[in-house]
Design a protein around this nucleic acid. Structure first.
Lengths: 173, 173
DNA sequence: CCTATATGGTTCTAACTAGAACTATATAGT
DNA sequence: ACTATATAGTTCTAGTTAGAACCATATAGG
């Protein structure tokens, strides 16, 4: 592979674009007196009967150590409630309260419109192409992690070995 | 614009890709007993005579409130030092110490190789195309922020009005 | 020279990030 | 039935994030 100096710049661009998008999205969400992770939870729970922490973590990319705190602060705001799972003593179900549902109903479409504005000059095909490019990059990073980290992470058992095996067989998330 | 449900998914993909990349980069940087922002500072200062906080903030995307703390922790680790600016009483110059230079010299190429592995299956043209796509998205977000936020952020003076004016004339960063 | 405004860096704040370690519960295996 | 292992969620930790407010200094304008 030639021109290695290009690579840091494309990843720098990924970081810049991500940061710019977060700032944009936050500018709207802050008008609701919510943070981005809090709003993400509300959007994820909207139109559902509730979710476990595990499921919420999967849907929102918030790691479980962090999720407990975010849910607590939403509880404090009266927007979600926790219910013990009927089927698993370890689990709890997080569900929007009526107030939370109201926030969801009144802001979801507004937020979609807000986000839509980013793509005013994109055709639908261009959006699909962009998403595919990002997915390809994510898979490339995941692949690199499995391969390269074998060398750097020698000795790590369990997770890494299992994922390497999964990667070899082409099954990724 | 049709198919609005595509948009949240492309941005979700941006967030996933970003998070996956950070985790990948961190797995290497953690072997150096550094965090990503700390390593970013060292990489940015490498092969320079030092930089002001302002310049460092611009190069690394770390906001100034955060930067003070990151620099302090690097000072504690003996990897950087601060020097008063000779030309501006408000400014300080941050420079790598000999120990910091040694970390930079021994790890920069190693990290580049680590990052290179992401692009094993990319041609140089594909990398350039990806970077252009990300830049376009970032500009689209910046444009949306200038336009749409006029509505949501009515009444905000100074910054927003100025940036809107700059955007209209096509001069962005 | 003086005043007003802007800027560089610091301090402070609430919230978040990413794990590791822990406890209670579930599941697998004998 | 019992033991070993895995899992869901909590607690804890160090570090980071993004601003706002502040102070000292620089610059612009009259």
């Amino acid at each position: 592979m030639t021109s290695p100096s290009t690579f840091p710049t494309v990843l720098r661009e990924l970081l810049r674009t991500h940061q710019t998008f977060l700032a944009y999205a936050a500018s709207h969400v802050h008008t609701l007196d919510l943070t981005l992770p809090q709003f993400d939870i509300i959007i994820t729970l909207g139109n559902t009967t509730g979710m476990t922490f595990k499921k919420l973590g999967e849907e929102t990319l918030i790691t479980k150590g962090t999720l407990t705190g975010v849910i607590s602060r939403l509880e404090d705001k009266g927007l979600v409630q926790r219910l013990a799972s009927e089927t698993d003593g370890r689990s709890q179900i997080v569900r929007l309260t009526p107030a939370g549902e109201a926030v969801y109903e009144s802001t979801f479409n507004e937020h979609l419109d807000f986000i839509d504005q980013i793509f005013n000059d994109y055709s639908p095909e261009e959006v699909v192409t962009l998403e595919a490019a990002l997915l390809r990059l994510r898979k490339a990073v995941t692949t690199a992690r499995c391969n390269g980290s074998g060398e750097l992470a020698n000795g790590i058992t369990g997770w890494c070995a299992k994922v390497q095996d999964v990667c070899k067989h082409g099954v990724v998330e």
